[in-house]
Amino acid sequence: MYWSFIALALVAPSADALLRFACSQLVTERLDPLVNPGVAQSPHLHQVVGGNSFNISMDPNNDPSSLASCTSCTFSEDFSNYWTAVLYFRAQNGSFHRVPQIGNELFEQANGGVTVYYSPPNSGKAKVTAFKKGFRMLVGDTSCRNAACASKYRQLTYTCLQTPGTRTGETKDMPKKPCPAGIMANIRFPTCWDGTNLDSPDHKSHIAYPSSGTFESNGPCPSTHPAQVPQLFYETVWDTRKFNDKSLWPTDGSQPFVWSNGDPTGYGLHGDYVFGWKGDALQKAMDANCNINCPQLKSQQIPAGNKCTKPAIVNENIDGWIDELPGGMPITSS
């Protein structure tokens, strides 16, 4: 299990290592410069963290680390952008309310956002190639509504938090019962790269999963994608606690949470990434096998990251009780 690896990393930094840090909320708006570059209103709402150079186009020829003036992440040389869809609660009368985010138990000071991990190979023997300037990728499929579709993307899961520290019982679909401490969405990206292309038309073909096994079990990369890159992993904790009263849930017994992309199943979980580390900072951290803390990197306190925000370009109501998902996104279960 992935979390047994993390537990080992906490007690045995010489054997296993990972970068783990908070990225507070930068902006929540209907932009997607990866899938819909230049489009002022992308089809669905996203929550974005990282450098404040995030913009409508994110030209791959422009280096985010040279354009950003701040980052919401605690490693202050990381001006990358990380984004996901936004979770909503659907009431019995059909109205919607945005579910707030909270920092996980390790980063309670964070203003929502995402906990980010970069993990080198578990064995400590293989050379990991850090992402390069201009690199970007997408994992998951916003249109997935069943297990067969979601199975193409390994390790996109949910944890129904019994306590803030729960790290077992991951599921591919949305939890079907109230979660006492919230719902954590877990997004793990593929870890093999073709070694040439910084992007691809579908933002996925230049990356791949190991040809057998998993990243955690040191599975080999396929010959088409021979370069091993760090495992990028997002954890987002959605504070569903105030919606846990079952009398508020659908009378047919179904669960009430829906993604901003219109997905009530959870199978459409997805995440986007645009690399923006300054210089070779990430490669240095990977080469040093940094474990949690990394003296090779500059860092800032979480309150400083909380101050790095930017106004939304798309002016629309996304909070309070609303009659439809932002952008009028329809809900589809198949």
Rank of each mutant, 00 (worst) to 15 (best):
M1F: 12
A7Q: 13
A9S: 15
V11K: 09
V35C: 09
S42E: 08
S42D: 09
S42Q: 10
H46I: 08
Q47G: 13
G51R: 01
N62L: 15
S66V: 13
A85Q: 11
F89K: 10
H97C: 07
R98W: 06
Q109N: 12
G112N: 06
S123D: 14
S123A: 09
G124R: 05
T129K: 10
K132A: 10
G140D: 02
R154E: 15
Q155I: 03
T166F: 03
R167N: 15
P178A: 09
A181N: 03
A181V: 02
N186H: 14
I187V: 13
T196R: 12
D199F: 06
S205A: 14
S211H: 08
T214W: 06
E216S: 04
T236C: 04
T240G: 01
F243N: 00
D245W: 03
T251R: 10
D252R: 10
N261W: 01
V274T: 13
K278I: 04
Q283W: 04
Q283R: 06
A285Q: 01
M286P: 00
M286T: 02
D287G: 07
N291P: 02
L297N: 00
L297G: 00
A304V: 14
N306P: 09
C308M: 07
P311K: 04
G327V: 10
T332F: 13
S333M: 12
